[in-house]
């Protein structure tokens, strides 16, 4: 019932910009950690991002926006979609790897090493695309496509992997800041006791 309205509610629910901001920060952080020689810290950035996002959501967003539990049908769709998309994403990455291997004549070391610089950005891009499809958020998919393009073009142009990660992360980071600022202006903090409950 009311699937059009449900879509709008979902857009409002995910439209605060905190997810974009934290995703951008995580990816940029991964790139910077790589550049500053703390390569091992790179995988920690998304985990820290998740913690930060949960804090932002709880402390900043939910007191203003409130919360919604979507229908069980929708949640089931999301669970199934996540599994399918992870499988499809893995298969796509594998096929892309095999394709590159074949196009470079069985893996010419020079070309392979050049293209491999884009792999982190490809992975981030694929993750963005998958999350965008899963949450039905076009802008996440756009960040994903941008990261894929940045990864491929940057790798071919000879940029370092960390640069491609930083550039890929700056796009959602900047967009997230704009969305979050707009959200904070649009939604003043509402406590239920003030609301007359």
């Amino acid at each position: 019932m009311n699937s059009g309205l449900e879509e709008r509610i979902r857009a409002v629910y995910w439209g605060d910009g905190s997810l974009d901001l934290v995703a951008g920060l995580s990816v940029t952080g991964m790139g910077l950690a790589w550049q500053w020689g703390y390569f091992a810290l790179s995988p920690i950035c998304p985990a820290l991002g998740l913690v930060l996002w949960s804090l932002l959501r709880k402390q900043l967003v939910e007191p203003r926006l409130g919360s919604v539990v979507f229908t069980e049908e929708r949640r089931q769709q999301e669970r199934e979609g996540l599994m399918l998309l992870v499988l499809a994403g893995g298969a796509a990455l594998l096929m892309a790897g095999v394709g590159i291997w074949m196009m470079t004549g069985g893996g010419s070391p020079a070309v392979m090493s050049r293209i491999s610089a884009g792999i982190p950005a490809f992975i981030i891009g694929t993750a963005g695309l998958l999350s965008g499809a899963l949450l039905q958020l076009r802008r996440l998919a756009v960040y994903g496509i941008l990261a894929l393009v940045i990864g491929l073009a940057g790798a071919l142009a000879g940029f370092e992997p960390w640069t491609l990660l930083v550039v890929s992360g700056l796009v959602p980071l900047a967009a997230g800041m704009v969305y979050l600022t707009r959200f904070l202006k649009e939604y003043p903090r509402r406590a239920e006791e003030e609301a007359g409950e």
Partner: peptide, 27 residues
């Protein structure tokens, strides 16, 4: 009712933000 029909559950704050009503009116 239209908002609630689209989801399983919604809290007061979300409903107030989306309907634009004052707290007392919504209550």
């Amino acid at each position: 009712v239209a908002c609630l029909a689209a989801v399983e559950e919604m809290d007061f704050v979300f409903l107030q933000g989306q309907t634009g009503m004052t707290g007392g009116n919504l209550s």
